[in-house]
Design a protein around this nucleic acid. Structure first.
Lengths: 325, 325
DNA sequence: CTGTTAGCGCGTTCAT
DNA sequence: ATGAACGCGCTAACAG
């Protein structure tokens, strides 16, 4: 592999001059520039990124941290990040954590080691207190609500999401309402539960332990929910579901077992996965692509402008009425 | 930021010794090792990746090139790559091309510039002849069939896919068969068409121009197919569809417009997206996750073992019968 | 407009 | 077991 020195030798100039034409700096004789360019062409030379990264102290790479790639909520976020990143000449290092705290820390260390200029965390496992220790190595943006004053974030207040859903259900006469959520103690789940309880108490409803389904993530989990439902003496008339994949599983299993939707069971899902559209599931959603795009923008501002302030961007979900309600 | 020199000074040793403990090299006094480690701890020191990459000439990062992230076929491949990569301590640079040839070349140049140790290309736009020019900078693996002798690949012979589908349809008495494909002139499409024509001619069937739908990628495209279908005097009785998202669009639009499936129209989709399972679409599929995992293995072998030979790994699809046939 | 030089931070012989 | 010195490839400040 030729290097800048080799090019300089062949062109009979110093490496500075070569560096200047490489970086489009002014003040270099037009003939020399052409000569150098032609030699570069002839030798099929390219700069060594690592050397440049070392000397510049940055890589133009950002890390994107998420639990699972193969999940449309996250791949939509990536899509949004990806588009904005391309526009600003940044590359994306994709890191799947599978909810492993160690893996998350590992990536944060890449920030410390200057491999990454910044990090976007879609769903944190360690909690923002631990993340905060890393902001001195580079900006970190989360796609979740945090109380941190050193982490920018774009988020949805899932209290509002579930509140919106509860309001809708109550307005339509439901009092026997259950819900499905993911990780039982995540910030988002806690907010959802609060909204659920608040709304329920407003109509003197009584939360039934049996009607709460946690650890729901996949279509299969939705199927299991229906199985449980079928064995209950008293069933909820409506279910608020934190993710449309679960909702899809419910809808599908219900139709197979003769449970009519929305006749016997009303379903409201969350987020903007295409499956909701295909199955005509009523959903409460914001644009996941926007989450990614906004997150990148926040991160990019912090990387490029110094003393850029920490920002919190809230996105507001809307309820789209379809055929499961 | 402290560097190795600083650590060495504080410990009263040379940078070589520090480097030795950093890299777990033998021959270093146990007391000094502990002392150095404690200083590293105290200063919260980390190595600078870029310096290491520069001196080692490798980054442990591979590029993954695909048209769209937000598409389950590709995100499943990423999932497969991701898992294997984590196992071997490699990171993934994700690059969405949106079918732009320039973007593809851009990433290949990152290989040339030593930013990447290797590249996996899920779906090439430039064609393998152009890709071949880059293998001297690092191994390239494709997830498509190529005739190249310098590119390893894991692939599905889509002639077989469509042949399998045609065989099934013909066995079930269909003679009026159409198909939906993506890019009209991609390698995969050409193979699919060949299989279609071969099978059709084996029963003296006549291909009808009207029943060929190209440029189909999304659920919406499936909807359009149904719209076209509805306006035809003579309709096909079966459709072979190159991707389940299109098939999902067809199934959904058909049910809304009173076209019975499989009564009026039999549908066979392709690939292993979950939507097929949810909508009970008969599909011809291989494991997309395996594609990714195998691709990484091929790439990793080429990166680590020198003189590793070029390999072609063929994956075989199976037909899963469900309710659309 | 151009060249010299000093780093960037680290791994690695080669002596000792 | 340890350290001095060189090199990885490049940018940028400085001098001219």
């Amino acid at each position: 592999m030729p290097n800048i020195k080799k090019i300089a030798e062949m062109a009979g100039v110093s490496i500075s001059t070569v560096s200047r034409v490489l970086n489009n700096h002014p003040y270099v004789n037009e003939e020399k520039r052409k000569e150098i360019l032609s030699i570069i062409e002839k030798l099929n030379y390219s700069q060594n990124s690592n050397a440049i990264h070392l000397v510049r102290g940055k890589t133009n790479v950002i890390g994107v941290l998420l639990p699972f790639v193969n999940h449309q909520y996250y791949s939509a976020i990536i899509e949004g990040i990806s588009k904005m990143a391309a526009k600003h000449h940044y590359n994306i290092m994709l890191c799947q954590t599978g909810y492993s705290p160690e893996k998350e820390i590992e990536v944060l260390n890449m920030l410390k080691m200057k491999k990454l200029d910044g990090v976007i965390i879609c769903s944190t496992i360690n909690g923002w207190e631990k993340l905060e220790k890393y902001v001195k190595f580079g900006p970190i943006v989360t796609c979740e609500e945090t109380e941190s004053t050193s982490l920018s974030s774009v988020y949805i207040d899932h209290y509002k999401t579930f509140a919106l859903g509860m309001e809708y259900l109550i307005k339509h006469g439901h009092t026997q309402i259950g819900y499905c959520i993911g990780r039982n103690h995540s910030i988002n789940s806690l907010n959802r539960k609060r909204a659920y309880l608040d709304a329920l108490s407003s109509i003197q409803g009584i939360p039934k332990e049996e009607w709460k389904f946690a650890d729901c993530f996949t279509v299969e989990d939705g199927t299991h929910v229906v199985q449980s439902l079928l064995q209950m003496k008293e069933r909820p008339t409506a279910l608020l579901v934190s993710c449309n994949h679960i909702a899809a599983g419910i809808v599908r299993a219900a139709s197979k077992s003769g449970l009519s939707i929305p006749g016997d069971l009303t379903i409201i899902g969350c987020d903007d996965q295409q499956i909701a559209e295909i199955l005509d599931i009523t959903t409460i959603a914001h644009s996941s692509i926007d989450v990614g795009a906004d997150a990148f923008t926040l991160l990019h501002d912090q990387i490029t402008k110094k003393n850029e302030e920490i920002k919190k961007v809230e996105l507001f979900p809307k309820l789209t009425e379809r055929l499961t309600t």
